[in-house]
Design a protein around this nucleic acid. Structure first.
Lengths: 121, 121
DNA sequence: TTCATAATTTTAATATTATCAAAATAACAG
DNA sequence: CTGTTATTTTGATAATATTAAAATTATGAA
């Protein structure tokens, strides 16, 4: 990851609402949340939320998929990994100290499937 | 570390000049650099540099000590540790996965002492 | 097609942040 | 005290970010 990309990612996370959104999406895992879900949970007006989601997307920290009429946003763990790697390598003098940090969604391991997913199986 | 502090730290690092300053200070280790050093290395005007140093200091990412008529700024590794811990715990779903990231200056481990340090020993 | 809902985009106003020149301050040497 | 160097503060301007309201697009159902 280049310094320029790191600044972009850091900027995206350096805002109260966006950090809150991202934390929710991380906790949620691969299934993701729709903007509607996030509006309910965070109380952010729709246009404002949309703006912040776009910022996070621009920094490649989240990605969206469409399912019917809903969009589902989820955290991009590869990108978050890259950011943490950049910080530990460049801002920590740790270098490759044998400690491989790998971000992965907790939810991916043992979460009940959604009704939609069950329908498909 | 609270979410509010994390936003402050992230904001401080989310700017090209400040990230560059911080990376230099991390590489440098405990001895630190004076504003004059940084002006030479980065070509930033003195008032702009001073502004950015204060921002980094406000986020507790760097600290200063005076030595004669010079100020020496150095990275605050405890604070950086706290930030990385926050990110891995809250934005990575890693939790305490047995991977303890600890930031420390490379310079602290195996760098030839400065003339000043030799004089004191 | 027409309607209702989900989500985004545009617009526009406000707030925050960055930049840098000029003046002010701090520390020291003579 | 006076002059010199290092650094910060002030203050003015430019750039960017934030947000709400209104308009627009897209989707699925009737």
């Amino acid at each position: 990851m280049k310094s320029k990309d790191a600044v972009l990612s850091l900027s995206a996370l350096a805002q109260t609402s966006r950090l809150a959104i991202f934390r929710l999406l991380v906790k949620r895992g691969p299934e993701g949340y729709t903007p509607g879900d996030l509006i309910q949970k965070l109380g952010i007006p729709a246009p404002t939320l949309s703006f912040h989601l776009k910022e996070l997307q621009r920094a490649c920290l989240i990605e969206a998929r469409r399912e019917g009429r809903c969009l589902y946003y989820r955290a991009d763990f590869d990108c978050m990994n890259a950011l943490i790697a950049f910080l530990t390598e460049n801002c920590c003098s740790l270098g490759s100290a044998g400690c491989e940090v790998a971000c992965a969604p907790v939810a991916a391991r043992s979460q009940p499937r959604t009704p939609l997913q069950r329908k498909r199986a």
